[in-house]
Design a protein around this nucleic acid. Structure first.
Lengths: 339, 339
DNA sequence: CTGTTAGCGCCTTCAC
DNA sequence: GTGAAGGCGCTAACAG
């Protein structure tokens, strides 16, 4: 990386002159045309790129925070949009100069990222989509370089904004049980994401406690795509194993299931009722055919609260492990109406 | 904003000691427990927040670029996710330390943002979702502080990655015309986004040139939501004005239309064929009922190319206004099958 | 155990 | 027209 000093040396002028010219103030300061073009040419040759840290340091921003948003890249890409938007709304409500840097990372690779020097330069970090392995790493004796807030996770060591995920599954189970739908199944996937297991656990436990334990044969695994859910549903139907009520782990899976039922001529909700967790855009689930009954995870709000919390932690207005709880929003659509 | 100097003065120690302690190296450097706690307490009292620019300057990153992604907040929130992901993929392919900062702004307010000192601290800027007014501003004699790349826009002055948007509409029109569907309509909205008008224009012109001009009465306006499209479709049907073929400006609108047709018992594609521009997640449109025929805008690729281009501009490897073209991807679903 | 000092790259004031 | 010098906040080497 070349600096204005290099350019000055090369051009045979002082660094001040270079700075003036490169900031477009050459004319105003009456630097000769010839010197100016020489400086521009050399800057180009040397591939000069201004160092923004130096610039910023000089100009001294007041109340300026650099916050990183780490998110594991996985199938739920819309997730990112909703959370980012929520965080941004949080930023706008703060009367501060906050820069949000999006840092994607591969699932299970948080350790590598945290140990790199990268995050030495943030004032705070928000982490979303953490896998079990990543969580495990965080809970070791690793010392973070700055305040960290976890998105929808719980940890004894770190602050977070989360929800009662077990209750999500419970609530869906009660909905089905109240309607007398005892033959239920779950469409899920072998996942490295812990909250999903909590949803399922709450559902399964509630059924078991009600005396209608759901057997292994009614737990259907698929990949994290609509396409996979579609295939699995077709198979379930072919094998005549379709239960009377199905709890889908995510709307991505539910979309695949709706499509399969449509193709196969299975009436929803008459032949099978569908309930899902809404982790995508709520709007989309209102206009599927039929519209989806679901519990929407308030991604935006969680993101916004994460931002507020991380700022509070940076400014030491909250004790280090602070945990905040939000509620999911139950929405009844056509796929599983009220009893 | 207090600095380590303030803390040092308050604690009666040197700034070096403060730096050591605050960086967690107190034990290793054998700073007394008492001094350490004193420093921590004072830091907390003074509300100390480390200046990351200073830190970064000192530690000297090699080849580190700060790139801003400006995006106008509007209804197409998934848009953001796809683009960000594309940009990030571009970043990963570069062997450089690139920070992507997401900067949302209100539609038509680009001028305000560009004139703030904010963007003095970026090496490059990618702008998405620009409105006419914002575009107009850019094309004045405004001098940008760094290279700028426009996402899916064209400008005589700025570099961009874009597509032949007019051709998108043309292609849809030809698809309908080839099938003999001369009674066509468009579901669109009065928009401040120029590319959408190009889609529609290509469509309308092609129909007109084929001798089947589409009248005002077949141009249906709605808001930018599925809900609005749903309402408009119900009205069109009630007034018996539903055309034989409909071109929707975005999949968000198409979803509303599919739902309306489902509710009203209008068979797709038998009674009305639907074609849309896919600006959302391609996957979702494969699992609507029925699946959507569409031209998908390659958001991810465009984003990735924007990143590569902006880096090239920063490094002066491309002349200033460089324009790159990509192609949309035509996908035939059930809502308007091949002739 | 703690302090002094020398920069990191840039911009601005002042002097020539 | 141009140069020299100072300092933004921080860290690391070196000195006590």
């Amino acid at each position: 990386m070349s600096t204005i000093k290099d350019i000055a040396k090369e051009a045979g002028v002082s660094i001040a002159t270079v700075s003036i010219v490169l900031n477009g103030k050459g004319k105003e300061r009456k630097i000769s045309e010839e010197t100016q073009t020489r400086i521009y040419t050399i800057a180009q040759q040397l591939n000069y790129v201004p160092n923004q840290s130096a610039k910023k340091l000089r100009v001294a921003q007041e109340d300026s925070y650099a916050i990183a948003f780490y998110w594991a890249t996985d199938f739920r890409i819309n997730y990112l949009a909703r959370i980012t938007l929520g965080i941004q709304e949080g930023i706008m409500k703060q009367n501060k100069n906050i820069r949000l840097t999006v840092m994607p990372y591969k699932v299970d690779q948080l350790e590598k990222l945290m140990k790199s020097t990268q995050n030495e330069f943030f004032n705070g970090i928000i982490i979303a989509n953490m896998s079990d392995k990543d969580m495990e790493f965080l809970n070791t004796d690793f010392v973070p370089p700055c305040p960290i807030v976890l998105f929808n996770r719980e940890s004894p060591k770190f602050s977070s904004v989360t929800m009662d995920n077990y209750k999500v599954g419970q609530s869906v189970a009660r909905h089905f049980l109240d309607k007398g739908l005892f033959d239920a199944g779950v469409l899920t996937h072998d996942t490295t994401f812990p909250i999903m297991r909590q949803w399922m656990q709450g559902f399964l436990d509630t059924y078991r406690d009600a005396g209608h334990a759901i057997g292994e044969e009614n737990i259907f695994l698929c990949q994290t795509s609509s396409a996979s859910a579609f295939e699995v549903c077709k198979r379930i139907h072919a094998e005549r194993r379709m239960p009377r009520a199905m709890f889908c782990e995510s709307d991505v899976l539910a979309h695949g299931m709706l499509f399969a039922c449509h193709e196969l001529g299975i009436a929803i909700p008459d032949a099978v009722e569908v309930f899902t967790v809404g982790i995508n855009m709520p709007e989309i689930n209102d206009y599927t055919v039929p519209s989806l009954s679901r519990i929407d995870i308030p991604m935006g709000e969680i993101g916004e609260d994460c931002l507020h919390l991380v700022v509070d932690l940076i400014e030491k207005k909250q004790p280090m492990p602070t945990v905040e709880y939000l509620e999911g929003k139950k929405i009844i659509g056509q796929s599983s109406p009220l009893g």
